[in-house]
Simulated assay, not measured.
Amino acid sequence: MQPLDVTLGDGPLVLGVPHSGTYIPVDIRERLNSLGQKRADTDWHVDRLYSDLLPGATMVRANFHRYVIDANRDPEGVSLYPGQNTTTLCPTTDFDGKPIYHEGQEPNADEIESRRLAWHAPYHAALRAELERVRAKHGVAILYDCHSIRSVVPFLFEGTLADFNTGTNNGVTCAPEFETAVFDRTRNADGYSAVLNGRFKGGWTTRHYGRPSEGFHAIQMELAQKTHLATEDLPFDYDEDKARRLRTHLKDILAALEAIAPVLADQNSKIEGAHHE
């Protein structure tokens, strides 16, 4: 199994999909307990949700499961949310804080490093390459990091999660025009709830690549899974009707980002030109 798939587009958007992959190598899978083998923490069908929404968008999709290694965690193991419950680079618990390995079968430091080199590093090498390619062509690159999670996970957050959770690390990872375009469309989506920089402010990917001053803009979208799944438990089936309705809004969001990109690139070009005069 190759670590990732890349679908090339010629537009300014790159869709990152780090958690929809379900592949777990046999040697790891056999060490997982029944909870681990359930794979409940998958971002179920997110790649399908975003597929073909915007013809010019590039997609970089991890094929491996987050229990192999989490492509949205700092490779150095630094916590995303200090003081809050979260999962690690190579998770040993699920989103409910329960062990996913048989006792004594968790990966050690050497195995974690081996997994990083085999899975995490290739995914980010590909993501970085596509962002650089896109920025070279358009003057800006927009990373839209695609995620989903169960609507109720008491170990991670209180109550029921909003349907749309936009994260920009409190406005640091993208130009305000992009943040406003996304959040305005989510909070005005009829029948849906939305929050900006709530529990999910953007993971390591968003924070690492989001450098607006260099022309790289990053936004994370965390969707509550009740927006597109028939059930948030086994068998985690895709709900065609829910997804069709949701995809209308997702398409609008991506199209808005694409429309803003050349305007911002032109502004940046004029500013850079003035600096050189």
Score class of each variant (00 low, 15 high):
His124Arg: 02
Ile149Asn: 00
Ala118Ser: 13
Val153Lys: 06
Phe164Glu: 00
Ser148His: 04
Tyr144Asn: 01
Ile112Cys: 12
Val172Lys: 09
Arg150Lys: 13
Glu130Tyr: 06
Leu117Phe: 10
Phe164Cys: 08
Arg115Ala: 01
Asn108Pro: 05
Tyr123Gly: 08
Glu106Pro: 01
Gly167Cys: 03
Cys146Trp: 07
Asp145Val: 04
Leu143Val: 04
Leu127Glu: 00
Cys174His: 01
Trp119Gln: 08
Tyr144Ser: 00
Tyr123Ala: 03
Arg135Cys: 08
Arg135Glu: 04
Leu161Lys: 11
Pro154Cys: 14
His124Ser: 07
His138Asn: 00
His120Tyr: 13
Glu106Leu: 05
Leu156Phe: 11
Ala126Arg: 04
His120Val: 09
Arg150His: 10
Tyr101Val: 03
Gly167Pro: 02
Ser114Arg: 15
Ala126Met: 08
Leu156Cys: 15
Ile112Asn: 05
Arg133Glu: 07
Val134Asn: 07
Phe157Trp: 12
Thr166Ile: 15
Lys137Gly: 10
Ala118Ile: 11
Arg150Asn: 10
Val153Arg: 03
Lys137Ser: 12
His147Gly: 01
Leu143Gln: 00
Phe157Ser: 10
Gln105Ala: 15
Ile112Glu: 11
Ala136Ile: 03
Glu111Ala: 04
His138Lys: 03
Gln105Ile: 07
Cys174Asn: 08
Trp119Ile: 14
Val172Thr: 11
Asn108Glu: 13
His147Phe: 06
Leu161Thr: 00
Arg115Thr: 02
Phe157Pro: 08
Asn170Gly: 11
Thr168Pro: 04
Ala129His: 15
Asp110Gln: 14
Tyr123Pro: 06
Glu106Met: 05
Leu161Gln: 14
Phe155Cys: 12
Ser151His: 02
Thr160Gly: 05
Ala162Leu: 09
Arg150Glu: 03
Gly171Gln: 03
Asn169Met: 11
Leu161Cys: 07
Arg116Gln: 09
Val134Trp: 05
Ala141Asn: 06
Phe155Ala: 14
Leu117Ala: 12
His102Met: 09
Asp163Val: 09
Asn169Asp: 13
Arg128Gly: 12
Val152Arg: 02
Gln105Lys: 15
Val140Gly: 06
Ala162Ile: 07
